[in-house]
Amino acid sequence: MNKQIMMKTSFLFAAVASVLLGCTGTQPNNQEATETPVSPELSLSWKTDTTFTGSESTLYDPAADVIYASNGNTKAGEKDNDGFISVINTDGTVRNLKWVEGNLHAPKGMALLNGKLYVTDIDEIKIIDVASASIEKSVPVDSAVFLNDLATDGQQLYFSDTRAGKIYRMAADGSYTAISSTSPNVNGLECYEGHLYALDGEGLKKFSNDGQYTQETINTEVTGGDGLVILNDSTFVASRWHGEIFFIRGNETTVLLDTQAEKSNTADIGFVPDKNLVIVPTFLKNEVAAYELKY
Rank of each mutant, 00 (worst) to 15 (best):
A267I: 04
K206E: 14
D258K: 15
D268W: 00
L277V: 08
V272Y: 14
G211D: 03
D233S: 11
V280D: 02
K285G: 09
T282G: 03
D226F: 01
N251V: 11
V222Q: 05
T217G: 14
F236D: 10
L256S: 06
V222K: 05
V222Y: 03
R240S: 01
G227C: 09
D258N: 15
Y213K: 10
V280K: 00
F271P: 05
V255A: 02
D258G: 07
T214E: 13
D210K: 08
I245A: 04
V280P: 03
I230H: 04
G270W: 05
G227H: 05
G211P: 03
T220K: 11
T253L: 04
F246K: 00
V272A: 04
P273I: 02
N209A: 15
D274V: 02
F271W: 14
V229T: 04
T259N: 08
T266W: 11
L284Y: 08
T217M: 11
L256T: 02
I279G: 08
G250D: 09
E216P: 13
I218E: 06
Y213H: 11
S264P: 03
D210A: 11
T235Y: 02
I279Y: 08
D233F: 00
L256Y: 07
L284K: 14
I218D: 07
F271L: 06
V222H: 04
K263M: 12
A261S: 13
F246M: 07
S208V: 10
T217A: 13
G270V: 04
I279P: 11
Q215P: 14
E262D: 13
S208I: 08
N265S: 14
L231V: 02
E244S: 02
T220V: 07
E221P: 02
N219K: 10
L231F: 12
T220N: 08
L256N: 07
G250P: 14
V255C: 01
H242N: 09
W241G: 00
T266R: 12
H242G: 01
H242L: 07
D274H: 04
F247R: 01
A238Q: 06
L284Q: 11
K263D: 10
K285W: 05
T214C: 04
Q215L: 10
T254E: 15
N232V: 02
